[in-house]
């Protein structure tokens, strides 16, 4: 069991980052820290997804016609994660723009204080 885990430290790292990110999102009251938590979660998923395409001693998948017995790594996860990164950037951009609006309205970044003043109209 422990040997298997040591062989796959990438899985351990990804899961640890996922949990750290989730904990940050759920427990911090500061809205910016929540967004940072989401970013940590994103990084963990990307790490996990890319590392499952990895093959030991595999080479970058640039096909050479005259050499037949080369092992290539799987390029598909990396390509998918490029899309994932684009999505993550747009979510971060949108949530930061929302945070700017929230700060203008409430004058604080604390979610609990915002929820207290939810009904108040200026």
């Amino acid at each position: 069991m422990i040997e298997a885990l040591l062989k796959h430290t990438n899985y351990l790292g990804a899961i640890a980052l996922f949990i750290i990110g989730l904990y940050t999102v759920l427990t911090h009251n500061n809205v910016l820290k929540k967004v940072i938590g989401i970013n940590i979660m994103e990084t963990s998923v990307f790490l996990f997804f890319v590392s499952i395409g990895m093959i030991q001693f595999g080479r970058a998948p640039i096909i050479k016609l005259n050499e037949t017995d080369i092992i290539y790594v799987n390029p598909l996860p990396s390509a998918l994660i490029l899309t994932g990164i684009v999505v993550a950037v747009s979510i971060t951009a949108y949530s930061i723009s929302l945070i700017i609006q929230l700060y203008r309205e409430f004058g604080t970044l604390d979610l609990d204080k915002m929820l207290e003043n939810k009904e108040e109209q200026e």
Partner: peptide
Amino acid sequence: RSNFLASFRYL
């Protein structure tokens, strides 16, 4: 303000 708050939590 309630819309920004709701959509931030939803997001």
